[in-house]
Simulated scan of single mutants.
Amino acid sequence: MNCSMATSEPQQFDPPIQTVDPRTGAPLAPATPAATIIVFRDCPSGGAPELLMVERSSQMVFAGGAVVFPGGRLDADDHLIASSLDHGLDPDDAAARIAAIRETVEETGLGIGFATAPQREALAEARAALHAGAVFSELCRDAGWTFDLSALTLFTRWRPPFNERRVFDTRFYLARCDAHDHIVEVDATENRHLFWATAADALAMADEGKVKLIFPTRRNMERLAQFGCHADAVAHAAQYPARMIMPFIEEHDGRPFLCIPEGMGYPVTREPMGSAMRG
């Protein structure tokens, strides 16, 4: 799917529909739409693929000090770009893919989801411009960049039902980084460190106390550790079409656990509340 920008007027978007808790039926406060990319690259020595991880600044309100995948919230310009493309996707899904592409450029300097891979120098300039407040659609237009939204595969979608200060409705996408010599650099704003690691290695680092994984990231790492390559993950995503995952608290053996529903592709579906990091 080579998605170039069309010249039609941007469509208008209706306000998001209020979500209800699937277990209680109670209405939930609106969540902020967000998107993230799980970037795969083949390990040069063989074995499991490596994933691009971002360690957030400890000063951040949401997931401070935690290791996450690159991404962030959607903005109006993401919808503007999506509405100008011929993509055949749900409008919100398309806008989330644009947001994930933009945030990955901002946070890592990596260009994922473009029809033709941008030159490294051009990406660096665009990244600096975005940090200075430039508009992504204008940068793409001036650079002649077009998108290949099919390079991103929808993997899952998470939205906590709890009334917390920061609630995000986050779509997770899978993507592949073909070249192994891509230079990624931390943005030094919201994040403090970037690194590549297999899912199993990231889980081991968390168990050893070297990194922090919030509950959704840990569950997704456990799921990703099952795959030997990006294609395996894409095939698995086709077996388990993404549905909204809303964690819930349930008692087991007299102890409270943070849980997710069974049958959604996750090998581990609960964790004691005492160890679960919620964000």
Rank of each mutant, 00 (worst) to 15 (best):
88 G>V: 01
236 H>M: 05
251 E>A: 09
234 V>L: 04
138 E>L: 09
131 H>L: 13
110 L>Y: 00
143 A>M: 12
41 R>I: 04
272 P>R: 03
200 A>R: 09
205 M>C: 00
253 D>Y: 14
248 F>K: 05
70 P>A: 10
156 T>L: 08
109 G>Y: 01
157 R>V: 00
7 T>I: 08
228 G>W: 02
1 M>S: 14
5 M>C: 07
24 T>K: 04
183 I>Q: 14
134 A>Y: 10
80 L>N: 06
164 E>T: 13
129 A>C: 05
226 Q>K: 13
215 F>L: 06
156 T>V: 08
203 L>H: 00
261 P>T: 03
204 A>F: 07
187 D>R: 03
74 L>T: 15
225 A>E: 05
45 S>C: 10
220 N>Q: 10
119 Q>L: 11
74 L>A: 13
272 P>T: 02
56 R>M: 10
115 A>E: 15
248 F>Y: 14
79 H>I: 00
253 D>A: 14
63 A>P: 10
131 H>W: 10
106 E>K: 04
204 A>H: 12
91 P>A: 05
131 H>R: 10
32 T>S: 12
270 R>T: 05
162 F>C: 12
101 I>R: 01
229 C>Y: 02
186 V>I: 07
172 F>I: 03
204 A>N: 11
150 S>P: 09
7 T>F: 08
63 A>Y: 00
11 Q>D: 14
22 P>L: 05
211 V>D: 11
40 F>S: 08
83 S>N: 00
263 G>R: 06
260 I>L: 08
248 F>M: 06
200 A>Y: 01
93 D>S: 11
10 P>D: 10
118 P>G: 01
108 T>S: 07
124 A>Y: 10
139 L>T: 07
180 H>K: 09
249 I>W: 09
133 G>N: 12
95 A>N: 11
40 F>V: 06
33 P>A: 10
2 N>Y: 04
262 E>M: 07
148 D>M: 01
253 D>N: 15
43 C>W: 11
222 E>K: 05
86 D>H: 11
80 L>T: 05
81 I>N: 00
259 C>W: 02
277 M>P: 03
210 K>M: 07
46 G>W: 06
24 T>M: 03
97 R>C: 04
147 F>Y: 08
86 D>G: 08
122 A>V: 11
222 E>T: 04
70 P>T: 08
130 L>W: 02
205 M>A: 06
6 A>G: 15
34 A>N: 12
168 F>T: 15
232 D>E: 09
247 P>H: 06
223 R>Q: 15
165 R>V: 14
131 H>F: 10
188 A>D: 14
172 F>Q: 10
110 L>T: 06
121 E>I: 11
216 P>I: 07
